[in-house]
Amino acid sequence: MIIAERKPIDEILKFLNKHQKVLVLGCGGCVTVCLAGGETETGILHSQLTMARNKEGRPLDVIEKTVERQCDFEYLAGVRHLVKEVDAVLSLACGIGIQTCAEAFPEKLVWPGVNTKFLGVNLNVGEWAERCQACGHCVLDKTGGICPVARCSKSIFNGPCGGSQGGKCEVSPDTDCAWALIYDRLSRLGEVDSLREIMPVKDWSFSRDGGPRKLVREDLELESGQ
């Protein structure tokens, strides 16, 4: 799941400085799950913006709405009439949703309300950790289900490096050494010998190194069948 965090209010207020009426647009997808941009957070931001601008004596008219998912144009189409009424849209969706929003409403300013942090897991209420970097070529089969790309600070493939101390990473004592985790898990499973095989240099062309990525599946495309 995508993990995001609300931007500091100062930043948001600066974006909206020149506007009189804005739409705060929440998203019912990942950002609801990670408590950053669901209906509740939308309401909280609405209230906070109203009070902040009232304090300055320049009231801001805020409309709030939460759509199912901002990364689909169809859901955004549902609020097109609301968007016409406002000066700008403040999107609380992840980076994907914000961009989709900007694309869907070319005539309007669309401001980001959250910082999109990473792809991760929800460890507990209020606690998230990175698990995937969407590198495009999964190696979890070779590493006991623990990703060296996302979870090793150096993303090395034949670890651990010399900075692994007592199962922790030298970058931060709060970070587990991914290679220590990989070793522990494989040895528990009796598969530790598989680590003797030296992994070749990773082909990063599937990742960002090949430029922005796009996925097309002709078997599913609506036009291609015709």
Partner: peptide, 11 residues
């Protein structure tokens, strides 16, 4: 107590 109750009241 919802955070929203507190904020709505403070408005």
């Amino acid at each position: 107590v919802d955070l929203l109750y507190l904020l709505k009241a403070l408005e």
